[in-house]
Design a protein around this nucleic acid. Structure first.
Length: 271
DNA sequence: AGCATATGACGAA
DNA sequence: TCGTCCTATGCTC
């Protein structure tokens, strides 16, 4: 689940359960080296930027990136024995949170945090974020828009599911050169990303189809194109292909290819 | 039991 | 562009 909405949801939930408390911190797996520094220390809160999560202790900040496999599990206190792969266990008064499989989980100093922030593009979930830099970057490259949307230094928080769904909803073919996106389309994209991510935080999952009152979206109804065989809108076949090292899903009826300016790769593939 | 798969990102070449 | 790292799940045999 780890796209931007997951980390922002986690920041809220971790803050709700653990903020203000002195935590018992452990690493059943043994691969988190901040246990000594943090055990018994008070957590101020948890925050998120893009796909990065920060545990803000009074004395230090833990930087967590879930990568593809990282997960948090919540338990009531007292929690069950931790699985051996548990990298980090945070035990608060009422709840325990177990982290497994993260790409990153380390104490970060000021310089590291600053470098990270400098590297990340604007996060649509940040109410203070402005899209000007993202627009400038997007407008300045001929890379495929589908690849640019995964680039966390342009916009942070969008992952493989959101990129497919956002491009579908905007009717943009993923191989469209980024610089051909108009300012008006970009503004739509930014607003859509913000609203979908916010909805993801609220619903605790990615949902891009219209809400049906009284019904919860299921795996079968939540998305238009991602991992589907048929387009939820027109019923046509979904094309599945690699783009930016990940699997892209698109309906080429609802997302027509840009005219003449095919990418070189697309041309090669078609011949 | 074993294998394929996954919503991510990095470094080497 | 490829290999690599990290773990859990759900399939197939």
């Amino acid at each position: 689940m780890p796209e931007g909405h997951t980390l922002h949801r986690l920041a809220l939930d971790l803050s709700r359960d653990l903020a203000g408390a002195k935590l018992s911190v452990s690493s059943p797996q043994g691969r988190f080296d901040g246990v000594k520094t943090l055990n018994g220390k008070k957590l101020i809160d948890a925050t998120a930027v893009g796909k990065h999560l920060f545990l803000n202790f009074k004395s230090a900040v833990v930087h967590i990136h879930l990568g593809l496999f990282g997960r948090f599990k919540r338990h009531a206190n007292p929690p069950p024995d931790a699985r051996p792969a548990t990298r980090l266990r945070l035990l608060g008064p009422e709840h325990a949170w177990d982290l497994s499989g993260p790409t990153r989980c380390e104490i970060a100093d000021k310089a590291q945090l600053e470098a990270l922030r400098a590297r990340l593009g604007a996060d649509p979930l940040d109410p203070k974020a402005t899209p000007e830099t993202a627009w400038a970057k997007m407008h300045a490259t001929s890379r495929a828009i589908g690849a640019v949307l995964l680039d966390q230094s342009v916009i942070s928080g969008i992952g493989n599911v959101y990129r497919a769904e956002i491009l579908f909803l905007l009717g943009i073919h993923p191989e469209t050169p980024s610089r051909e996106i108009t300012r008006a389309k970009f503004d739509d994209l930014w607003a859509l990303a913000a609203s979908l991510l916010a909805r993801g935080v609220k619903e605790r999952r990615i949902v891009t189809t219209p809400a049906v009152p009284g019904k919860r979206a299921t795996k079968a109804t939540a998305l238009y194109v991602y991992k589907r065989d048929r387009c939820r809108n027109c019923g046509g076949p979904i094309r599945k292909f690699k783009l930016g090292a990940r699997t892209m899903f698109a309906c080429e009826t609802c997302q027509p290819k840009p005219k003449e300016t095919k990418t070189r790769r697309a041309r090669q593939r078609d011949e």
